[in-house]
Amino acid sequence: MGQPVIIQIENIYYPILAIVGVPANLLTIIILSRGKCGLSKCITGYLVAMAVADLMVLIFDIILYEINDAYFPYSFLNYTPICSLNIALCYSFIDCSVWLTVAFTFDRFVAICNQTFRTKYCREKTAAVVIAVVSFISVLENVPLYFVYEPREIIDNIAWSCYVKTSSYTSPIWIAFLWLETILTPFAPFVLIVLLNALTIRHIVMANRVRSGLRANNSGGNRNDSEMENRRKSIILLLAISGNFILLWVLNFIVNICVLFTDTQFMESNYNDSFTIAEKSGYMLICLSTCTNTFIYAVSQSKFREEFKIVIKRPLAHITKLIE
Rank of each mutant, 00 (worst) to 15 (best):
G2C: 06
G2R: 13
Q3H: 12
Q3F: 07
P4H: 03
V5D: 03
I6A: 10
I7W: 06
Q8A: 04
P23T: 07
N25D: 06
N25W: 02
N25K: 01
L26S: 12
L26M: 09
L32V: 01
L32K: 00
R34A: 04
G35E: 11
C42D: 14
C42W: 15
I43Y: 06
Y46R: 15
A51F: 05
A51C: 05
L55I: 04
M56H: 09
V57R: 02
I62L: 09
Y71C: 10
Y74V: 09
F76L: 15
T80C: 02
I82N: 10
C83S: 14
N86E: 13
I87N: 08
C90M: 14
C90F: 12
S92H: 03
S92A: 00
I94K: 04
S97N: 12
V98D: 06
V98R: 01
V98E: 03
T101I: 05
F106R: 13
R108A: 08
V110K: 00
Q115W: 06
R118A: 10
R118D: 11
Y121K: 07
Y121E: 06
A127R: 03
A127P: 02
A127D: 04
A128H: 07
V129T: 02
I131D: 05
I131Q: 00
I131K: 06
E141F: 02
N142P: 00
P144F: 04
Y146P: 05
F147C: 14
V148Q: 07
V148W: 07
Y149N: 08
R152M: 13
I155P: 02
I155D: 01
I158W: 01
V164K: 07
K165E: 01
P172L: 08
W174Q: 05
W174P: 06
I175N: 02
A176Q: 00
L180G: 04
L180D: 03
E181C: 10
I183K: 14
F187L: 12
F187D: 02
L192K: 10
L192C: 13
V194S: 05
N197K: 07
I201W: 15
H203R: 01
V205M: 04
S212G: 11
G213I: 01
L214H: 09
R223Y: 10
E227V: 06
I235P: 07
L238M: 11
N244D: 05
N244Q: 08
L247F: 07
L248S: 08
L248I: 03
W249K: 14
V250L: 12
V250D: 01
L251E: 00
I257P: 04
I257T: 07
F261M: 01
F261C: 00
T264A: 15
Q265P: 03
Y271W: 06
D273L: 04
D273N: 12
T276Y: 04
G282L: 06
G282K: 02
M284E: 11
M284L: 08
M284R: 12
T290M: 02
T292A: 11
T292R: 02
T294S: 13
F295R: 10
Y297I: 02
S300W: 09
Q301I: 08
E306M: 03
E306I: 14
K313V: 09
R314T: 09
P315R: 05
L316M: 05
A317V: 10
I323C: 00
